[in-house]
Amino acid sequence: MEEVVIQADKLTKKFGDFTATDAITFQVRKGEIFGFLGANGAGKTTAMRMLCGLSVPTSGEAKVAGFDIYKETESIKKNIGYMSQKFSLYEDLTVVENIRFFGGIYGLNNEQIKNKTEELIERLGLTSVRKELVVDLPLGWKQKLSFSIAIIHQPKIVFLDEPTGGVDPLTRRQFWELIYEAAHNGITVFVTTHYMDEAEYCDRLSIMVDGKIKALDTPKNLKMQFEAESMDEVFYKLARQATRAE
């Protein structure tokens, strides 16, 4: 039996009369790339915020990296990494300063930070820009650096919220190679995306509609189940059933 790193059971969040996330139940296994899909407003962000320990559920249970999302949110935060397109790096710090800053935040000691810095810079090919401000880097480089920093403390799980918007197809794939590598090394990847080809890269996918998980399986099985040629078709068949506006 493979280790379960995320266990959600009827997880629910209400804002007044509005049920943003409606009793979702699912498991994610160690080292899995788990795609978390849904139209804008389906409730993905709310669910993700609860799993990261940033928002208290209205009802339901969940454990992330073995910790309870009501009582052990601080332990959760130490054992996960998080990256989103909106917030990731400090643009007015240099590449090296960002690595050192986040390494410190995640509790690495000076020697670990030094080693990690050299390792990351070499692996990502950032030697020539190590002392440049992050604001001046091409978007694709920023995304790769941001991801590498999100896993600098070897978390059990990394949450990626639409990580790859706006880059060219080649850069997007280089980014996914980093994701595969992390998963290969045992880090569980929980990712949201609007690119349906990226959905195909996931081991398993859930698709949310109106706050509920309407489908959950491997991309291959989902395509069979919905008699669809592509994940785009699957998504379209499910998401157009949505009744609530964003």
Binding site: A39, E162, G166, H194, F235, Y236
Partner: peptide, 10 residues
């Protein structure tokens, strides 16, 4: 259509 979900994009 940047940042818009696949259904709205279509």
């Amino acid at each position: 259509t940047t940042g818009v979900d696949p259904v709205s994009r279509r």
